[in-house]
Design a protein around this nucleic acid. Sequence first.
DNA 1: CCGCCTTATTTTGTGCACAATCACGAGGAG
DNA 2: CTCCTCGTGATTGTGCACAAAATAAGGCGG
Lengths: 227, 227
Amino acid sequence: MTWDDDVPGAGEQAADRVHATLRAEILDGVRTAGSRLREEEIAAAQGTSRTPVREAIRRLAADGLAEIAPRRGAVVVAWDADDLDELFDLRVVLEGHAAARAAVSGRADLDRLHALCDRMEALRTPPDYPAITRLNLEFHREVHRAGGRRVLPELVARVVEAPLVQSTIRRYTPARLDRSFAQHRDLVAAIEAGDADWARAVMTAHLRAAREVVRDAVTADPAPTGP
Amino acid sequence: MTWDDDVPGAGEQAADRVHATLRAEILDGVRTAGSRLREEEIAAAQGTSRTPVREAIRRLAADGLAEIAPRRGAVVVAWDADDLDELFDLRVVLEGHAAARAAVSGRADLDRLHALCDRMEALRTPPDYPAITRLNLEFHREVHRAGGRRVLPELVARVVEAPLVQSTIRRYTPARLDRSFAQHRDLVAAIEAGDADWARAVMTAHLRAAREVVRDAVTADPAPTGP
DNA sequence: CCGCCTTATTTTGTGCACAATCACGAGGAG
DNA sequence: CTCCTCGTGATTGTGCACAAAATAAGGCGG
């Protein structure tokens, strides 16, 4: 009920359920980076056969959340420092583009963006990190939807969700949260003004700051790779 | 033997074979945009059961070459003019980034890039479009590899291959081919010089030109959507 | 003659079983 | 004591069969 809000009515299919569950478990850190994804174990836990589980795992691999070695099974992806740098460079490029396009596309739901800012800021003290993370993701997704029609949203989703595997959100100090919230407000203002360059600049600054947080988290933890 | 050169040793698995075959058929225009992908038909044609076919189709959907409607089957993707605009914007952003990074990463295989230019230009008169297309794709892939470590290559591959569904390569006139080849040479020079801005500019110009060609092709054909 | 409901066929989704392959461990030779 | 080889267990890949659902066709009523 935390992460699968983007798959609302498709929950009928068993494969979709398993996919959503595994996705949530990975993003919540229940399944740590590098841990194996055994089909039979998951099938037993979910009360289905291996067939939907296989499909769910393949979909996770397509989402960039798992890696499959032929005849050897799947593991949750593990990113090293260089990988995270590459990911954040791509986030800057893609989300910057999305922000710029959102500013001029006229498809941005400004009321919703304002509301999401309000709700995030209401959760500041004491910080409810899981809820903030979810709302933050939804805020960014709204910008992606406004900036792209078909491909951009799912393309950028891959890059945005990938670093969440490391579950680094809890590293945000209240001061960092304040800065992040202020940048969100700035971004909405830039989009509202229809200023593409401004929007791109704000998004770039926003993500550069986030990169620092993740970098600190990775260097603090010695190695996120599992046994 | 034309498109699956990126899956060299993994051809042992039936699912990989089916995936490569379908991918080639889609990219070669044998399966037109909008046409259905019936599992049993493909399974019979490939001499396997439906299980690997299902996995192959799901992978095609993840590649952005097919679309799956639950309980209704899969069809080859069909892009309208707006979709193609979005795709080319993303190509400019992502491949421009790749070119810029390739110029400064020191991971570019300059000999290979030069060789690919030579081979393409050798096929100019008379134009061997399928071979040129393949070499062109390989040239771009080399730039992607040099510009990104893990995520960028497969991310940009999705956006680059997607428009090929429309099979618009044959629209290139000899004059357009010359311009394209010259831009390739420019790009290699920019990478060789280590000039990121130059490389990005050349790539942007290169893709803007390609966009025009595709735009002409789409407006010429009334509707690429199949029955 | 047109529209709606019922029925039949096709096609996808899932469960289950067997085969192939890989990892691990025991055993023996050098 | 170390390294290589062979067997055993575990896990994935594929084939096959049944069930559910959607589409298409046909008949009935208005």
